[in-house]
Design a protein around this nucleic acid. Sequence first.
DNA 1: CGAGGGGTTGACGTTGTTCAATGAGCGTGG
DNA 2: CCACGCTCATTGAACAACGTCAACCCCTCG
Lengths: 257, 257
Amino acid sequence: MRQDDRDIMDSYGRESTPDIWKFLATVRRRFRLSEEEAGLLKDAMRETSVFAPGEYMVREGDRINYSSLILEGFACRCKDSPDGMRQIMEIQIPGDFVDLHSYPLEVLDHGICALSECRIVKFPHAEISRLIDESPRLARIMWFTTMVDASIHRQWIVNIGSRSGKARIAHLLCELYHRCKVVGLTTDHSYWLPLNQTQIGECLGFTQMHVNRMLRELREQGLVTLQSQKVKIHDWEGLSELAQFDPDYLYLTPRDG
Amino acid sequence: MRQDDRDIMDSYGRESTPDIWKFLATVRRRFRLSEEEAGLLKDAMRETSVFAPGEYMVREGDRINYSSLILEGFACRCKDSPDGMRQIMEIQIPGDFVDLHSYPLEVLDHGICALSECRIVKFPHAEISRLIDESPRLARIMWFTTMVDASIHRQWIVNIGSRSGKARIAHLLCELYHRCKVVGLTTDHSYWLPLNQTQIGECLGFTQMHVNRMLRELREQGLVTLQSQKVKIHDWEGLSELAQFDPDYLYLTPRDG
DNA sequence: CGAGGGGTTGACGTTGTTCAATGAGCGTGG
DNA sequence: CCACGCTCATTGAACAACGTCAACCCCTCG
């Protein structure tokens, strides 16, 4: 653990979970938050809760009065259709403010479903309003994070709408590698990805069988392998070129604004 | 013109264009704005400008210090890829705050291109900051409108990722009908749509030829016709059922928040 | 008159789905 | 211990959806 992580931990006491300290340290670095701003964020947090894989945190159409931040585990934004199909629209990883969208929207247009076991911490909307009043900079950062979700949605539209099968899967794996790297969830060029082939298909508009075939080709080309929920990227250059991957749309470089 | 439209016009003088009065009246109704709030909005507007069809207002990667609102004409959010392909990610119509995303994001991840001749009015980012300081309610409304864009993106991911060819086109035409209706741009069940078949294909991930075939089938089924930039919906029930269209994601009903 | 943009249509190849069968791993209960 | 059911991954063959290539039409504009 880095020194500035420990500083954050110490200033808010030992009652918090390690995930909360880690989140605060990461977000402080990324947005160059002052200690006071990090404190405001910390004060707005309420209870944590845990969801099992496949469990829905929020359903489409729900009107909720809090927003959740993922401390541990993976989740997704998705919509179910009456014929049993499901479309996943974004993968959410630890550190993501997963349904901040519900604060301005009030009623959510999509559900949020745990992919692995998932621990979250809740921010009541009333506390978010207070944060906005007390710190215009935090207000802007929250707006910013929701706009990054919109940017990711746009990239997914490009991905699904105009890339080949192999490139679509490659792009998804590149995106998640970059995002996991920022929150310290990669080692070398591999990371944990708790999605099965069916769920990858639900992200990309493919059947599970077709995902299987595309993954085999990527493996045979020596680009990437996916085994027992572990992604190993063997040829980053080749994979990102096939995917036409450019990480700018993730807005991951530290900001001053 | 309705009486409350005229009230807005009179309170801000005759120097504005009719589009600005009309916009202010529409947004006042939709968000139940007070006269004072509408006045703040009006004061944040600067020069208007006009773009020709095919002209880019903003390019991907631009860092701009204003956001534009469409007064007249259609535009789109899009990304160009090196091989000459283009993906359209959202259609923007009069009354849309088309690149408010650039205010929190600073650098835009996508371009904005005029589809027809387009007149816009600019809001400098400094004025937007002032609006946010002076009216938390306007701040929240601006955040809200950008989140509706995100919701539309999500619906497009569902559309492209999991619907059949005919249903995709049907859904696009249903969405635009609903959105045009709110800003008074429909008559009966028809509206102006300045997209050719190539551009419809760029929205949905199809070739122009395939769009042509799907449009023919929709026409032969008596659902909808598209001729010389005019959409005529002959069977709304049939079309919206084929598209599985549910307008909730557009968040068009008036809000009190 | 010709050029150019948009729409229309057909033949054919590629991509992805559907249906079906098989196997590997893993926890549970007899 | 093994049998059983379950989930997930794998593979093949037939089929449908969609792209590619090419030709042709209509209209407008210069």
